[in-house]
Design a protein around this nucleic acid. Structure first.
Length: 345
DNA sequence: AACTCTTGCAACCGCCCTTCC
DNA sequence: TGGAAGGGCGGTTGCAAGAGT
């Protein structure tokens, strides 16, 4: 193990590649393919080890590489994927065509990390730095996916991600309807520390972000569902309910009636690749007829966009909601749903 | 202009996993 | 079946170029 046998051989060049070496490697692979990497240097006439050739090809010479600076969209995607995948650079790179894991890793370490810190976000946990400091005595550095319940003790809502759930996930779309309604795009909500961010129909009472309750834990799975493409949460409720056509769920919530919630999907069957390939990942929001959209976003997104949330209340399309009374009712609805949501778990 | 510091990036190192014999 | 070889990945290093003094 450890060092490869080829690396023990003498007279192998190290360090930066010359244009001549690049040309030899490029010509060889273009004409013959790389085949066994350990034989490439000999066949291409290079004094390099196979591993070095492979790296040079993957990170620099490959024709499908995208050159130039990362776009803001790419950066945002990297942040979101990192929140989900951690330092799995190759998996992140797989979602960014033309970018290499090395390139993304470098960007992260030299650029994105800094930006997140400037915004007060811990780049490892994707949580506010103040919250991370608070959690330090009890939170492992590797357990960056879960929000401890203690940190959320004083909040109306919180989200907790099971620590043993690092590799699997099922996207969920939840849509709540009440008199005022509330729709939730939770496609990422168990992956990253999230906050409810008010959308343009939500009253100013929600301008301060809340965390989300309940924890999405993994109760024993009794379902035989094999529908991996569109896993849903099943809501057991004595209220009127129905599934929407895009994996969401509509839930009518009468006054003071706690409802039970449980997932109906075996998440352990859902692999990351499947999750990331689902349409849910694009962040589209499920809207119902009278819903008030509330978008769950990473904190980075929240901080980046918080200024654009000014006076969302005035943009409401439903005039009936533009009143303090409606705002109050909506608040209570949201709290009630969150409480019953939490109690059920 | 010269020096030091910082930054970004290419490449290497070491480990793990898989495949082959 | 076990060891060797190869492939792949994440962490780290070293260097060149630019910025600052």
């Amino acid at each position: 193990m450890g060092r490869h046998s080829c690396c023990y051989k003498q007279k192998l060049r190290k360090g930066l590649w010359s244009p001549d070496e690049d040309e030899k490697l490029l010509n060889h692979i273009t004409n013959h393919g790389h085949g066994c990497w350990s034989s490439v240097p000999k066949l291409a006439g290079l004094q390099r080890c196979g591993k070095s050739c492979r790296l040079r090809w993957i990170n620099y010479l490959r024709p499908d590489l995208k050159r130039g600076a990362f776009s803001p969209e790419e950066e945002n995607l990297i942040v979101e994927l990192h929140a989900v995948l951690g330092n799995r650079w190759s998996q992140i790179a797989a979602k960014l065509p033309g970018r290499t894991d090395n390139e993304i890793k470098n960007l992260w370490n030299s650029n994105i990390k800094k930006k997140l810190k400037q915004r007060g976000i811990d780049p490892n946990t994707h949580k506010p730095i103040s919250e991370v400091d608070k959690d330090k005595p009890t939170t492992s550095s590797t357990d960056h996916m879960s929000l401890s319940s203690s940190s959320a003790a004083n909040q109306d809502f919180y989200l907790q991600r099971p620590s043993d759930f690092s590799d699997y996930f099922g996207p969920q779309k939840l849509v709540f309807n009440s008199n005022l309604g509330l729709s939730v795009d939770s496609s990422l909500c168990s992956m990253i520390p999230v906050q409810f961010i008010p959308g343009n129909k939500v009253g100013s009472v929600f301008q301060t972000p809340s965390c989300v309750k309940p924890s999405i834990s993994l109760p024993p799975d009794n379902s035989s569902s094999t529908d991996h493409a569109a896993p849903n949460w099943e809501f057991q409720t004595n209220n009127t309910s129905s599934l929407t056509d895009n994996g969401g769920f509509t839930w009518s919530v009468p006054d003071s009636s706690p409802s039970l919630v449980k997932p109906n999907h075996n998440f352990e069957e859902l692999k990351w690749s499947e999750y990331l390939n689902t349409p849910c990942f694009n962040g589209s929001t499920v809207h119902s007829q009278i819903s008030l959209p509330i978008f769950i976003k990473s904190e980075a997104d929240y901080l980046a966009n918080v200024s654009s949330l000014a006076d969302p209340w005035s943009q409401s399309q439903n005039e009936n909601l533009n009143t303090p009374e409606a705002s109050d009712v909506f608040c209570k609805d949201l709290q009630r749903m969150a409480v019953s949501f939490g109690q059920s778990l």
